[in-house]
Write a protein that binds this DNA or RNA. Sequence first.
DNA 1: CTCCAAGAGTAAACTAAGTTTACCGATGCA
DNA 2: TGCATCGGTAAACTTAGTTTACTCTTGGAG
Lengths: 153, 153
Amino acid sequence: MMPPSESFPVNAEDMLIGALLRVPAQAIHRRIITELNAAGFDDLRLPHIAVLQFPGPDEVRPATLAERAGMSKQAMNRLLGSLEGFGYIVRTNAPGEGGARIVRFTQRGHAAYAKIIDILRVIEREWSSELGPERFAQLKTLLTLVWESPLVR
Amino acid sequence: MMPPSESFPVNAEDMLIGALLRVPAQAIHRRIITELNAAGFDDLRLPHIAVLQFPGPDEVRPATLAERAGMSKQAMNRLLGSLEGFGYIVRTNAPGEGGARIVRFTQRGHAAYAKIIDILRVIEREWSSELGPERFAQLKTLLTLVWESPLVR
DNA sequence: CTCCAAGAGTAAACTAAGTTTACCGATGCA
DNA sequence: TGCATCGGTAAACTTAGTTTACTCTTGGAG
């Protein structure tokens, strides 16, 4: 739907980490979907982000994707079903591995994933020029520390 | 549902800003809901975050809340309906202002919101002690810059 | 060798969420 | 007086995600 256009007073010191992370993360998601749609990948919607998120679903088991996304295998399976229907991925049997399956990108899937990377790189350039390259690099470094810490597990 | 327990290789330099923001933001949301539920506010679910998010729905119009959350008035109204049913808020008519309504916290609503602030403060303390206070402060400063910039509007 | 537990995938029913479309009521201005 | 506008609602439709339950395969314990 419509993007938020926040205009309430911003008191920097009052902001808690939750809002500080949520708002930009949301803005990025919306933008990814919007630009993906505009680029011809117009059957992708917000929930598909759960599948397409880093590091992508190529050569991965559905159950692994479900865990990454923090959702049930069944919910992930439905998403995969729609992505397969749209021609972004295929699921094939993992040979010799029980009933296990492997998700693989189709050409269209690869293209969409590459487009996401492109969009993110553009966003990074914008942020970098808005904040200044050193500060942006610092931000990424700090977020990477968070990522690597046990905080978000 | 189950939280993700990421264990794929993390190459710091490959991480794009999207994933760096999304993962911790998601982790925080899950934790807020989990602890809120554990604290007796057990009818609150993930979507309610859209209403309870900073700076909270007290003394605010439904349409404003919808815009903040980036969703339709109708979707917000449903959320408000459920929150009202659970006794977290009440909607009263704004006197003299057309059919306009005002959302107000009940006591329970105030308590839940205060609990969210508490949880976030605990999280901030944890992050601060994990990263070191200076680095954590720096992270917040940088995120505040992002927030104040036109990047996320 | 057989049986059974464990793990992966799938299916179906149910619930919840959010969008579109459409309508009501009040305000305020031409 | 008439009407455009804005805020709020309602209903129908669609999409998502959970729970519950079943299948198939593998691998071990007996």
